[in-house]
Amino acid sequence: MSYFLTWLALMVLLALTTASSYIPMGIFNTVANMGISCAKALLIALFFMHLRGASALLRIAAVTGLLWLALLFGLSWTDLGTRPSAPAPIDARR
């Protein structure tokens, strides 16, 4: 039963993302899309992948990959987010 409910929730969320992207909300379109994607991922991880009720070790392993990806993005953004300008194009192509 809980599998079916999870599936139903996923379908509703899918409809929500798709619909939301036809409403102009500026930056919040992206926020909504990503938020909903995270919710979907969480549902899949908790119920289909049984992270709910899994041992602490498994949970740590499950978030480590994401955490490390966040490190890559976060620390790179200390550079990319604070560059005065985009790099100049080079035209001396082979």
Binding site: S21, Y22, N33, K40, A41
Partner: peptide, 21 residues
């Protein structure tokens, strides 16, 4: 399920940019 989760992110990333435009 992991493959599924990856797609869950790919879908809005590639298909849903400023659809209202």
């Amino acid at each position: 399920h992991f493959i599924d989760i990856v797609w869950v992110f790919l879908y809005p990333m590639f298909y849903l940019l400023e659809r209202y435009g």
